[in-house]
Nucleic acid binder design. Structure first.
Lengths: 205, 205
DNA sequence: TTGACTTTCATACGGTCGTATGAAATCATA
DNA sequence: TATGATTTCATACGACCGTATGAAAGTCAA
């Protein structure tokens, strides 16, 4: 919202904040342009439509997120360690950008077709993790089971625990906005996922 | 939408469907009344306002859900078994009522205060599971860790995997609408949670 | 400084929004 | 069947919606 930055950037920043907080239908073009200190016509002028601005916002959130995870997954090491590292990278991004799960959740809750940027994000992240799961299953370090379901289990905890901030704050004495407390949540997720996937443990049905 | 049922019931049924699919702001009173085959004024007449109808809808979804979980958790047996049973009961409810996670996700994504019915639902479910976790930690059958975080990890997988239906369908050959395939997801979650919580396994950091 | 351009701006358009109003229809009870 | 309460209905209100329009202001090479 730096008043010196160009109008399209200010609009994107306003969109990121307002769409996250109030959703697409709950945010009007007048809200957006007022927040960005641009004229009412700026959305049409720079993006063509409110929808197009929304999609641009989704891309701006989703792409660096998927990229961070993929990069962490490319590091060398045993598959399980790389899964946990990828998850930690994703959680680090969520720590800095808590709006990401909000956009995803809203789209999952709706009946519309998943917008392309969200679909790409999920396909890429699930694909990245599922590939590592398959690798670990081949070398015996990761337990049997559907790789995609295992990947989704891991992802779900990260997204949910980030968004359940208010539940956590109410029920527990953790404020997930604070980096120290968020670090506890991250460690918890890493440990949970490790336990879920590790093969070197007897298990009952 | 049985045309014989009373107008308030038809409105609640329409609200359940439309609010879930399009959200609060994406659903107009005109949509609701048309779907329920009632007059435009019926929402005001029976519920007072659109907001009040929305809250009534949330209660109608959340209360039986929490009740089913609490009931399963009351059965006798070791804590870990009761956790898995409670989770299976919750997942069974989600199998019949896929709208529940949609409402929760939308509220979590928004900035509004959690509506009372949703807050009650989460507090009750987290409380139910966390109490069982504490019980298992006392008798040594469940590993150490924050009981609330452990409970949230379990819940997150259930909600997310139910809502990620479209991701699953795209990435995998599972149609979670079909009971047979949904049963696979349920078994997966039960197994994951068991592994996450069980203490009788050595684990790394 | 001119002239062609990009960008900003105020305003207007047809629609739809949630809710209010009061008359008409329906129902239950006496 | 008459009466009073409940429920249905058509319609109206002011507010806000997303987008279009064309004039005004700003930018910069020639």
């Amino acid at each position: 919202m730096n008043p010196a930055s160009p109008a399209p950037d200010r609009l994107l920043a306003a969109a990121r904040d307002l769409f996250r907080r109030h959703g697409y239908d709950g945010t009007s073009v007048r809200d957006l342009t007022a927040r960005a200190h641009v004229n009412l016509g700026a959305v049409t002028y720079y993006f063509g439509s409110k929808q197009a601005l929304y999609h641009a916002t989704l891309s701006a959130v989703a792409e660096p997120f998927a990229e961070r995870i993929a990069e962490a997954a490319r590091q060398p090491g045993p598959p399980l360690d790389r899964i946990v590292a990828a998850l930690r990278a994703g959680l680090a991004y969520l720590g800095e950008h808590p709006e990401a799960p909000a956009f995803l959740f809203r789209e999952l809750a709706s009946d519309r077709a998943l917008p392309a940027p969200i679909a790409r994000l999920m396909k890429r992240n699930v694909g990245t993790l599922a590939a590592l799961v398959r690798e670990g299953q081949r070398d015996g370090s990761i337990r049997d089971g559907d790789p995609v379901l295992l990947a989704l289990s891991a992802i779900s905890q990260a997204f949910f625990l980030r968004s359940a901030a208010r539940i956590i704050r109410d029920a527990l004495d953790i404020d997930p906005q604070s980096p120290r407390q968020w670090a506890r949540v991250v460690d918890h997720v890493a440990e949970s996922v490790r336990r879920t996937l590790d093969n070197h443990q007897g298990i009952s049905a």
